[in-house]
């Protein structure tokens, strides 16, 4: 990752140890994941032990240490979505993409994430691709949703 960008982020957070979560969030916003060398660099610059950084980076689910796909499919597995059949939607997404939840397809096109609740319970079950919400999703609709993003990327 661009060192200058990292420096700017560190600067914005005034090199505070307590801001490590915010710093990593900002890095991930740019890079889509947390590259190892960036974390090592941050550890050096902040003089914060790498074990602490690794602990935080693996504790919080928002962080990923491996690159993610171009499109992230978030299957909401909150209670309302679960009752409305979220597990079946997840099964269907996994079957269609031949990967499991929290994994990325070999072509780096899609990553599947499960999320606990997006607060859109009235629209359950919800599937979110990147920023687009799909409400009242049934397993039969999954293929159509995914193919839209596949063809969009080809364009």
């Amino acid at each position: 990752m661009d060192i200058e960008k990292v420096d700017r982020i560190l600067e914005e957070h005034e090199y505070r140890h307590s801001a490590i979560i915010g710093i990593m969030q900002d890095v991930q916003d740019i890079e889509n994941y947390l590259p190892e060398e960036t974390l090592r660099y941050i550890s050096d610059k902040l003089e914060l032990n790498l074990t602490k950084i690794f602990d935080v980076a693996t504790f919080y689910k928002a962080f990923s240490l491996v690159p993610r796909g171009r499109h992230t499919i978030k299957v909401c597995c909150g209670t309302a979505c679960h009752l409305a059949g979220a597990a079946r939607n997840l099964d269907q997404v996994e079957r269609t993409l031949h990967i499991k939840a929290e994994e990325t397809t070999d072509d780096r096109m899609f990553s599947i994430e499960t999320v606990n609740c997006l607060g859109a319970c009235a629209l359950a079950p919800v599937v979110v691709v990147d920023e687009d919400y799909y409400d009242a999703v049934k397993p039969g609709k999954i293929e159509k949703i995914l193919s839209y993003y596949r063809s969009e990327s080809e364009r």
């Binding site: 909150g78 209670t79 309302a80 979505c81 679960h82 606990n116 609740c117 607060g119 859109a120 319970c121």
Partner: peptide
């Protein structure tokens, strides 16, 4: 940090 799945009053 409204984490309870199925609750979204804090968000709103």
């Amino acid at each position: 940090d409204e984490g309870d799945p199925g609750a979204f009053m804090d968000r709103s």
